[in-house]
Structures are given as C-alpha cells and as structure tokens.
Nucleic acid binder design. Structure first.
Lengths: 202, 202
DNA sequence: GTCTATAACTCGATAGAC
DNA sequence: GTCTATCGAGTTATAGAC
C-alpha cells in the first residue's frame, strides 16, 4: 500500500513508471468498470470484459481489488466522495432558492462530467438484495442530505427528506434523459427546465 | 380427438389442468420474476430461482416464455401497459395543476401497488447495452408522454419532454425513497411533499 | 437429467527496481 | 538476491437451454 511514494526515478512528479504505474492500473480498471456496468449492469459485466477494456490482464484486477465485488464497492465509494464533495461545495454559504439553484446546477454538471457513474447510481439506488447495499446506501444518504439540509434551514415547514428526494430525482432523471436521448441540447435548457419545475409556480 | 378426454372428474371446458391453469402458471412466473429482479437485477437472478419462487418446474418457464430474456420482455411489456393505462386514465379530462396533481397521485399509487416493477423500471430506464432496450424505451417514452402532453397543453412555454422527465423523476424517486426507507409514513405525506416541490413556489 | 458455455477466481511464471 | 506489480492459461462452479 504505497501511498504517495513517488519512485525516485524520473524527476517528473508523475507516478508513471516505464510501462504503467500502479495508480494508472487502478484508474484504468475503475474507469472501465463504471463504463461497462453503466451500460450492462454488474452481473452482466465480466471481469474479462473489464480487464480487456482497461488494457490489463485479469490477474491485475484481482491483485489490485481482490474480487469483483470489492472492485465495485471501490467504484461506488470513489464516486460518492466526488459527488458529495461537489454538492457540499455548491451549497456552501448559500440559502434558499439560491442554494437550490446551485445544487441543481452542480448536480447536472456532475451528471454531465460522469454520466456513467450517474447511470450506475440510478440503477442501484433502490436495490436491497445486493452485497454492497451499505455502500450504495451511503451514496444515497449523503447526496440526499445536502439537499435535505438546505430544505430544512430554508423552508422549515417542508418535509426535508422527501422534498430532497423529489428534487434530487427531478434533477437526476431530467439530466439522464438529456444525456441519453437529447444530448445535443445545451445544459442551460436542462437547468432551466428543472429549476422552473422545482422552483417556480406553475 | 375426443382423446381430449377431460378427466371425467370436472366438466370445465377450460384449458386448465387439475392443479393450475396455464394463466396461473404464467402469472406466478411473472410475479416471481419481477420480485427477484427488483432485488438483485436480471443477470443475478437465475431461472432456477424464478421457478422455485413461482413454485413451478424450470421446464414450465421455458415452455411458457421460451427464454429468460423473452420472459423479462414480457414482464416489461405487461408492466408498461398497466402503468400507462393508469396514468392516461388519471390525466383524462383534466388540465393544468389539477392534471399534474392527478398524475402524481396515480403514479404514487402505482408505485405503492407494484413496488417491484417500479424498482425494475428505475434500474433499467437508462441502460443502453441490453437486449430489451427497445421494450424499456417504450415504457419510458409512453410514461413520460402522458406528463409531457399535460405540460404541452397547459404551459406551452415550458419544455415538454424535460419538464415531464423532471416531474416523473421527482415522483418516482420520492416514491421509492418512501417505500424502501420510510414505509410507515402515509401516502399523503409523500404526495404533499412531491406536489409542493413540483407545483408550489418555494 | 444432460449438455455446453461462460465467468469468477487461482497461481505459477515473469520482469523490472533496488 | 528480494519485492512488487503484472500476466494469462488453467480450474471449477454455475446457469441457460433442451
């Protein structure tokens, strides 16, 4: 478990070794995994497929992650950290409509930047019979929580968790509808559609 | 020909055999399939599991549906018909806020009545690499369309498809959050949370 | 019950860094 | 020489299909 341990070799601060460094291998595997699972689901994706797409041998997958399940948990955990960090940053120091606007904006940006993770998220959020249920529950809880906190402080008479779920769901589904089926439209149109649904009176 | 020799016992001219009729077998299999797939996903569910849970032999599954994939397509098609019929009925003859209120109400009722199908729906809607992509696309298109039509006629300046996606997503995610993690709360609280998010100004 | 394909996982071999 | 990351053919179980 060498953490940052940059090999003394080249002066470059990069982790690259002649061929590939361990970090690169891990990254390649993780990226291949999200991409494939977003498209076909966990069980329909074989470790062979993942290794192929990542350009590494199957043995490397097991050496680095131990098992297919553990690999998937890593994918979830990493994605979650990135997502909640981004959302928290967006809400930081804002309140009310402005905060909701910023959250929707940031969530759409994340969906656009990591569409595969977004797909995995929707696909797995409400499953209960899987081994990584705990990991997925964390993703959901923490993401919803950012919305819920905003609701709670700005509109105390609203139900925080259900309202948060509704807002999150509106943004996520509209965002994926956009990416998957109307990808040529500008983000702003999506943002406007979501915000007028969630913030403006009909 | 008369070989049809209906076991003297019962006179019934139906296709039913002693124990269960073909329709019952199909229903049992379909229900077992949605339940299992909602929980673990398509590939993680074996035909053996389905047959076990349905209380039939594996051969019956193949006799009635031909293949695991075809079985799943049937599940999707049947669920979709039920869902869109219900939604169309709810929107019928209504307009504006009243129509949206009725749609949200009905969609929540459907989620409550068929939670397993709802889970399968979220899990599969945005996947693109699967065989039954066409079937799932129909479910999505037709369900969204009901919302989109209401938006289009009542608020012509809004983007119909994205607004529909946002409304559908808000209701679906809030509904599943409710069923999966806060099942003891009354439907009305969920309905109110969604409607105030989607219909009322913040 | 049987046949066949496939997929998770294993493990000895390998090659570079010190 | 060791240590570490990698490779990939081989093993074994399971699941779809008939």
């Amino acid at each position: 478990m060498p953490a940052a341990a940059v090999p003394a070799s080249s002066s470059a601060g990069v982790v690259d070794s002649p061929a590939t460094g361990r970090r690169d291998t891990r990254r390649a595997i993780i990226e291949a995994t999200v991409a494939l699972i977003a498209d076909r689901g966990f069980s329909a994706t074989s470790v062979d497929d993942i290794a192929d797409r990542a350009g590494v041998a199957k043995g490397s997958v097991y050496y680095n992650f131990g098992s297919k399940g553990a690999l998937f948990e890593t994918v979830l955990t990493e994605g979650q950290r990135a997502l909640t960090t981004a959302l928290r940053g967006a809400a930081e120091g804002r309140e009310g409509r402005e905060a909701v606007g910023a959250l929707v904006h940031e969530l759409l940006a994340q969906i656009q930047g990591h569409p595969d993770f977004a797909k995995v998220l929707v696909a797995e959020v409400f499953r209960t019979g899987r081994d990584w249920q705990e990991s997925i529950r964390q993703v959901r809880d923490e993401s919803f929580a950012v919305f819920a906190e905003v609701v709670e402080t700005s509109w105390p008479h609203r139900d925080p968790s259900l309202t948060a779920a509704a807002m999150f769901g509106a943004t996520l589904v509209a965002g994926l509808e956009w990416l998957a089926f109307q990808p040529d439209r500008p983000v702003d149109e999506v943002r406007r559609a979501v915000l007028s649904t969630v913030l403006d009176p009909l």
